[in-house]
Design a protein around this nucleic acid. Structure first.
Length: 509
RNA sequence: GCCGCGUUGGUCAAGGGGUUAAGACGCCUCCCUUUCACGGAGGAAUCACGGGUUCGAAUCCCGUACGUGGUACCA
């Protein structure tokens, strides 16, 4: 019988949740759901020095916004907890000690200064490798160079130590990556990574392997930056649990900065003017606020969609996918090997598409909140709904709804008279005064009727309606934008329409 | 430096021995609309380079270049 699929996302709570992180979550989630499996969220907080309060809660909020909820986590519970590595400290040291006992790892007492000296020395002699490895470890202070008595004495004296994996040269470690195929590493090039730190915490290397085993992970997806350390993990699996129990690996391509080269970072977003984090992140230490996709006006549907097709496609021309469609169509085989540059323009296009596609009621609360932030209280929900539905084709970001709908709620503060004045004359002035009189008597305040009346008066005055519509629009809206004029007039009502014409006229005299 | 991974228009990308080398974003032109959008029709723009293999290479092989990741008691 096939094992139940179990995947995991394992962030460290050190700050905002990056685009790439969300995409890793997404691919994990899609794979799990497609196979009726479980998606686990594990908090990798083994680095005490980088711990940031609030970051963990923030990660959960982001996932909630994205609609990618874990099945097991510190918040959701589960049978494989605790799901926070700092709470599993005791487990890791057992395995580290076991490796030492089996001769697959060893104690090392070198101080940071000594390690630095080692690298300097290696650099000085022009060595290819500056690593702590099968070669350099012979000159260092560890249980391989020290006698067992000396080692024990140091430990008993409370000398700080780490446990390092002992990698022997002359072996080829290979594994099959679900995206990249077979990958080989020569152990001669692999260094003796620290497994257990001096503070008793495991490093990532030990922790992933132990936890993936204990949590019964079947498929492990992570960013490509982990590929070089894969041989360490494979060897650990081999030593500790056997290769048969090892999950299948998939190393996801990186998301690169749009210009220049390199991994996309928060700084690139700041520099180029777009978000990199899923949601606003306020650094508790500096107080700096970094904008998120949510707050800048993205729909979660669009955010998920654009992330999914960054490095993956279904082989057809389809680009717009709902989460359900993604669950159905996603396949790791179609994930790209190469990194993809992030294009914010395209990202916005996805949002625009989703705003058009979704019924206005789906994001009405968000729009309402945006209006409220700008001092507009849209009390009449059905009115708001109609207005939003009317203008959504011209909104790329949710925030655009403010400029596209303000004029439905209040008369424009300033109107673009400069665009009217050059062609303004007495005939037009007359036309609008007449229009006011007619409108005052209009019984059925509907766009078609208004348009008819408007054109009739124009005809009587020997004026082209086209020349009059722009001034009319500017009086109602304030500028040259917005939906059809008569629709707007119909929407805001007779009184407001007349008042805005009167006001416009007064400014043009 | 060493090790790993990668390379189809500006960007995301389909295609994987014979194609006019899809499609999308962006850009440009036109139509629709006497606004801005939406929608529609077009356009410019691509197989990193060099060698092979082959009747035929974007596609297979080998080099090179370039990019990228790692080379931490960070993940």
């Amino acid at each position: 019988m096939l094992k139940k699929v179990r995947v995991r996302f394992a962030p460290s709570p050190t700050g905002g949740l990056h685009l790439g992180g969300v995409r890793t979550v997404l691919f994990n989630y899609l794979f799990a759901k497609q196979h009726q499996g479980d998606f686990i969220l594990r908090i990798e907080d083994t680095d005490q020095t980088r711990y940031v309060p609030g970051a963990e809660e923030y990660i959960f909020n982001c996932l909630q916004w994205c609609g990618l909820q874990p099945d097991e986590s510190v918040q959701h519970g589960g049978a494989y907890g605790p799901y926070r590595q700092s709470e599993r400290k005791a487990i890791y040291s057992q395995y580290a000690k076991l490796l030492v006992t089996n001769g697959q790892a060893y104690y090392a007492f070198d101080t940071p200064e000594e390690l630095e000296q080692m690298r300097e020395k290696l650099k000085a002699v022009g060595s290819d490798s500056l690593q702590y490895d099968h070669h350099s470890r012979l000159n260092m202070k560890n249980s391989l160079t020290l006698s067992s008595d000396q080692t024990q004495t140091l430990i008993d004296a409370g000398t700080p130590y780490v446990i390092r994996i002992k990698i022997n040269p002359g072996e080829t470690v290979s594994f099959t990556d679900m995206i990249r195929g077979v990958i080989d590493f020569d152990t001669a090039n692999v260094d003796d990574k620290v497994l257990l730190k001096a503070d008793g915490m495991p490093t990532y290397h030990l922790a992933v392997v132990v936890d993936d085993y204990l949590m019964q992970i079947t498929h492990a997806f992570r960013g490509e930056e982990w590929l070089p350390s894969a041989p360490v993990h494979i060897l650990l699996w081999k030593y500790l649990f056997g290769l048969d129990a090892m999950p299948q690996w998939a190393h996801l391509p990186l998301i690169l900065k749009p210009d220049g080269n390199g991994k996309l970072s928060k700084r690139d977003g700041d520099r180029l003017g777009f978000p990199v984090y899923a949601m606003d992140w306020a650094d508790p230490k500096t107080g700096d606020l970094t904008k998120g996709f949510k707050e800048i006006g993205f729909l979660p549907e669009a955010f998920i969609n654009l992330l999914a097709v960054l490095g993956w496609n279904d082989g057809t021309a389809q680009e717009i996918f709902s989460l359900n469609e993604l669950v159905e169509k996603f396949s790791l085989e179609r994930v790209h090997k190469a990194g993809a540059k992030f294009d914010f323009e395209k990202a916005k296009w996805f949002n625009h598409e989703w705003i058009k596609k979704l019924p206005a009621k789906n994001y009405l609360p968000q729009v309402k909140a945006i209006l409220a932030d700008n001092g507009i209280s849209a009390v009449d929900e059905s009115f708001l709904l109609a207005v939003v539905e009317m203008v959504k084709d011209r909104c790329t970001l949710l925030n655009d709804f403010y400029t596209q709908t303000v004029f439905f709620f209040q008369a424009p503060d300033t109107i673009d008279t400069a665009s009217i004045k050059p062609k303004w004359d007495d005939n037009k002035q007359l036309f609008f005064t007449e229009l006011i009189r007619t409108f005052q008597l209009t019984a059925f305040w509907q766009s078609a009727d208004l348009e008819k009346e408007f054109k009739e008066i124009a005809a009587v005055n020997h004026l082209k309606p086209g020349e009059l519509m722009m001034p009319f629009r500017i009086m109602l809206v304030g500028g040259k934008y917005g939906p059809a004029v008569f629709e707007i007039a119909a929407m805001i009502g007779k009184e407001a329409t007349i008042r805005r014409i009167e006001h416009g006229l007064s400014l043009l005299q």
